[in-house]
Nucleic acid binder design. Structure first.
Lengths: 195, 195, 195, 195
DNA sequence: CATGAATGAGACTTCATTCAT
DNA sequence: AATGAATGAAGTCTCATTCAT
């Protein structure tokens, strides 16, 4: 797990994801992260202010990547675009099991701080999602009886839970879970009674 | 002898929910729980083996209550029964904001232990949900292209996220969130293309 | 291990010996002594002021018994009488393995307090031993080059160690160890050069 | 990096001996040992796994020193060599009153663990003593009617008791007690009837 | 006398963070 | 910049003792 000497910040984040997954954030020791990153304990503090900042760093990197993907998506039909957005979120986590577990267990404490570059990226992702949702509502593709933020929260939560499910089993592949999850997500937002 | 005054076990659980909400489980001190419960620190250990056991106790009480509600539901149409089950889950949390927050933040560590009376109750709730889902799939009400456990996970996660949303805002009442959430949940599982 | 209801003090002492042997004095809980004695924790404090007092009680009972035996010995030749005294000490411990272990491990803390009925009995035993030793020195049976109290301490310590040895093995019976130990003890005090 | 300043391990052991003597092992606080050693409480745990390990460390150092002395003794007549061995043991303790008291009070708990470098050194000392004893028995200098291990235990215990005696008084010097003790020890093992 | 639930001071130990090198 | 030994505050849990019943 020796990282390129040139990027200790990255090495620390990678190490942190591994250690946080194994021990949980609360149970993880900064010294263990340092060992995993192949550097000295004290060096961690040259790159991060403290333990919390490492977790923030993990999610900052994550959300910036997701944001990048989402912003790179072509503007298509609301339904398709929303599916692409949720898919990007799903993929960003399913590509890294350790990160996915850390997300499931520790993301709430990241959100609680409500500030920082990472939080802004997160908020922007949410915002982009809600924009697409709004467009869909206007065009009648999405149920207008659901508040936009509630709808966004619901499908987001559903995707999150699907990931958790995927991690817990071996029968379904990430692709299978992804496909079914997106179908459910869109279905959830689609007005019923309508064909 | 000094008799058991009232119900200290209950008092501790109630206190724990408050303290865990305020400080988070990791940040909460057993001494603070004791103060909140109006007893001495050491007394907590007469009722719970340790700090972890208190958290287990909180969720054991929660899931046993949910299970009781769910088992008390009449056997109706799969769609209705599933809505009732998810509603019971939603209600059990929306009735107690502090418990809801503790649920959102700490439930994963409860699940990680995978044992105890509380876990059994949780597993039974999951099981009951999947049974209803299965029935619905057979009767054609639910999409048969979704694996039962994935579908259950998705809607469960959606409801969880709706609760989180509800806690974060003031515009929508619990009843409103509940109603829309259940509609989304059922929609998610309903085959599309069907009228 | 239920004791006669009439003598809880005795029951507590008997129980204490068992528990102190198993756990050591420091590791023993008063509650465990109470359980072993078949009474309530609080009741212990009706008979003993505290945990220390129980240990004192154990050794008080022990030394009073030893004193009784020693005082009951006939006045004979110093060599024989000293052997009888040491034998009485040895027997009082070898008759009760648990007590012997407690003696070996905890007697020093009993002595450190230097007061109480038990300590007086102990001091009297020592004194009686030294008297006989002195007589033996005068009559030339014992080495006059050894200070009386040092000689007494040495043989006492030797007997103590023999007991410890006896507890640690199974080849030699108590009687065998006793016999050889007394021979060594007398030999230790007998002037040499008389070869 | 902060280099190891001096020898903290040694400082801790020295401090521990003082504190254990004053308070007894059970009553001693790790914090007090740290203060006595002039370091922070937490630093103790950089050198020792826990409180028990400190006590083990004290006796490990002690027995290794005794072993070194004993192994350095010239091979002479069994009587002389045994006297030298016991003398080395006596000296190692009489040179440090605090250590002697700790030995008297806490050595049994060290032995109870029956493992570690210190225990091996102890066992080796015992073994060397028994070898010499055996040789003496074969050459007729020592009483063949005493089991080797019992004889070793007896004289060992006698020396231990003499040390305890020496600590308790002021009339006899260490040298005087030593001389008389060794005479008694050898006498104890010498066959009688050879009068 | 008897009970045993309750108490709460106190100890061990951990670990995020610092800083001399 | 890098190191890792040192720090010391803080928290969990124990258990001798008390006292209301």
């Amino acid at each position: 797990m020796r990282k390129k000497e040139g990027d200790k910040q990255t090495a620390i984040l990678d190490a942190a994801v591994q250690v946080f997954q194994r021990e949980g954030f609360a149970g993880a020791q900064v010294a263990a992260v340092a060992v995993e990153a192949g550097i000295a304990t004290g060096s961690v503090y040259l790159y991060f202010k403290g333990k919390d900042a490492i977790l923030d760093g993990v999610f900052e990197r994550f959300w910036c990547k997701v944001l990048e993907r989402i912003e790179g998506l072509p503007a298509t039909e609301p339904k398709d675009q929303l599916a692409d957005q949720l898919g990007a979120f799903f993929d960003s986590l399913s590509e890294d099991r350790a990160l996915a577990e850390v997300y499931l267990h520790e993301h709430h404490s990241f959100l609680a701080r409500k500030s920082g570059v990472g939080f802004d990226a997160f908020a922007r992702c949410v915002s982009l999602g809600e924009e697409v949702f709004s467009r869909g509502v206007k065009s009648g593709q999405f149920d207008k009886g659901i508040s936009v933020s509630l709808g966004r929260a619901f499908v987001f939560g559903g995707v999150r839970a699907s990931l958790e499910f995927w991690l817990s089993q071996d029968s379904l592949s990430a692709a299978q879970v992804r496909k079914r999850t997106l179908r459910m997500a869109l279905s959830a937002l689609t007005p019923r009674g309508l064909a």
